[in-house]
Amino acid sequence: MKRKDFITSLFAFIPLGTGFAGITFMGARFITPRKSEKLYRKIFAMNLDDIEVNESKPFFDLTGRELVLVRTGENDVRAISTTCTHLGCKVHWEADKNIFFCPCHNGVFSPEGAVIEGPPPRPLDTYRVQVEGKVVYLYSQIAES
């Protein structure tokens, strides 16, 4: 190729290549969902006396996800997510065995959410909880993107 032809091709292909790269980038951004910042709100969860120590009750956060409120002490409450940390299925509370059981891939968790058996890589997620006097508040995510 002659020098002149090479320079001509270069001037033709640089804008063309840049254009294609730009379109590809915009296309990739278009099909990728936009991530919005996770926002949390402090909400009323329950009165402390609603359940006894070592008892639990189901609760739904503001996104509609189910969780379990467990009274672990006189003034202690834990909010445990019921979403399995393996592949996102919902765990079942098996009262007779005192465990959370995930029916998808047989993950077993303790009442505190620790992994006892099966493939889950980490304990059940927990929510931030605040006990003020006799009232239990939960920090719930507000919106999903």
Binding site: F60, G64, R65, E66, K90, C102, P103, C104
Partner: peptide, 19 residues
């Protein structure tokens, strides 16, 4: 029902080995 995974759940047969 996004809040309830059935106790007996399985995919189609061709995914059984991976499951």
């Amino acid at each position: 029902d996004p809040n309830n995974t059935p106790l007996h759940i399985k995919p189609e047969w061709y995914f059984y080995p991976v499951f």
